[in-house]
Simulated assay, not measured.
Amino acid sequence: MPFPPGSLTPAPDREPDLDDDFRTGLDPRWWVASYLPHWTTPERARARYDTGPDGLALRIDRDQPDWREEDAPLRVSNLQTGVFSGPVGSPLGSHRHREGLTVRTETPTRLLFAPSSGRVEITVSASRDVNCMTAAWLVGTEHRSPTESGEICIFEIDADAIGETTVARSGIKAHHDPHLTSDMSEVALPLDASAPHAWFVQWGSGETVIGCQDRTLRRVAQAPDYPLFLMIDLFEIGPRWGRYPKTATIHRVRAWGESGLAAG
């Protein structure tokens, strides 16, 4: 469906498949509170978070372990809408974003929300805590093929890029998909991203549209056409420094899957 450049892409005219403001806690029907648990161990992958009337606050705590010793210093709290892994010792699993990853914790396949096309809206307050990055991605599940690994980067926001104007990164990452070409760029937002603001992404039929508030920011003439998990993350990248806990708040997520909740 074509939309004029810069205009808001309207949501589908039906109820969302996923609509969560986290006020009643974390709903296990939709969320895995663990960052790519198959590549590491349960305690290292486990998300730290609090829920309340404002939504879900992802936390980085002072005593939080690094996601993997090999990647230290790197601590993550993450929500994702599914998981897939092969057996222990295999290279098979969702989001092989680093070289040399092998499965350490075999994790049963869960396709909680994994459409091949659709729309996602995320209202978030990004972290301004030192060394932090707040991010949201749609990543290939890879449960059918390791080439189904492309990523839609909805946003990556570094804490030191937040001010009256915020600079974020957004676009497509090919990873191991030979049919995609990485296309990432910086986008300037006329707002302080540590306050609540809404992102949207709509993808399908060879096009990805990414926007913030009421404006389209990126229109990319390519899109993954296979099942994707949603991931929303808070990272601390670098040595432990500053005040803890460090937080980013997810206020609400709405999502529509045009090919069903989980395409198998």
Results as ranks from 00 to 15, higher is better:
162 I>S: 07
39 W>E: 03
199 W>Y: 13
9 T>Q: 15
200 F>Q: 13
205 S>A: 13
132 C>Q: 12
176 H>Y: 07
215 R>L: 11
156 E>R: 14
213 Q>R: 12
68 R>W: 01
45 A>V: 00
240 R>P: 06
203 W>N: 09
161 A>R: 14
151 E>D: 09
100 G>P: 12
59 R>M: 11
16 P>S: 12
95 H>V: 07
229 F>H: 13
39 W>T: 01
144 R>G: 09
96 R>K: 14
10 P>C: 14
231 M>R: 15
86 G>R: 05
8 L>S: 03
262 A>C: 11
21 D>E: 03
232 I>G: 13
217 L>S: 00
102 T>I: 13
1 M>H: 14
166 T>K: 12
219 R>G: 00
80 Q>T: 11
52 G>S: 07
213 Q>L: 12
20 D>C: 07
43 E>H: 00
258 E>A: 15
30 W>Y: 04
128 R>S: 13
164 E>T: 11
228 L>R: 07
102 T>L: 05
42 P>I: 09
189 L>W: 13
223 A>W: 02
144 R>K: 07
179 H>V: 00
39 W>G: 00
219 R>L: 11
218 R>E: 05
70 E>P: 00
136 A>S: 14
100 G>F: 04
24 T>E: 12
72 A>K: 12
17 D>I: 05
92 L>G: 07
211 G>Q: 04
45 A>S: 10
93 G>I: 09
158 D>W: 11
161 A>N: 13
45 A>E: 00
126 A>R: 06
205 S>N: 13
84 F>K: 03
111 L>K: 10
55 G>A: 01
220 V>E: 09
97 H>T: 06
31 W>A: 01
59 R>K: 09
153 C>G: 02
79 L>W: 06
199 W>E: 05
170 S>G: 02
125 S>F: 02
227 P>T: 03
214 D>L: 05
118 G>A: 13
155 F>S: 02
119 R>K: 13
95 H>R: 14
168 A>V: 12
156 E>M: 06
181 T>W: 00
189 L>H: 08
222 Q>A: 10
226 Y>D: 04
106 E>Q: 15
178 P>R: 09
171 G>S: 05
123 T>Q: 08
262 A>L: 09
148 E>N: 10
169 R>H: 04
118 G>D: 08
154 I>P: 01
37 P>Q: 03
166 T>P: 04
118 G>R: 12
163 G>E: 10
258 E>P: 03
18 L>A: 06
65 P>D: 07
59 R>A: 04
5 P>L: 10
88 V>M: 06
200 F>C: 03
109 T>I: 13
251 H>S: 09
135 A>W: 05
88 V>T: 15
52 G>Q: 06
252 R>V: 00
37 P>F: 01
113 F>A: 02
138 L>W: 02
198 A>W: 05
93 G>C: 08
236 E>K: 02
120 V>D: 07
14 R>K: 13
229 F>P: 07
221 A>D: 05
67 W>M: 00
79 L>E: 01
222 Q>E: 08
94 S>F: 08
42 P>D: 08
123 T>G: 04
97 H>A: 14
168 A>R: 06
37 P>M: 09
194 S>N: 08
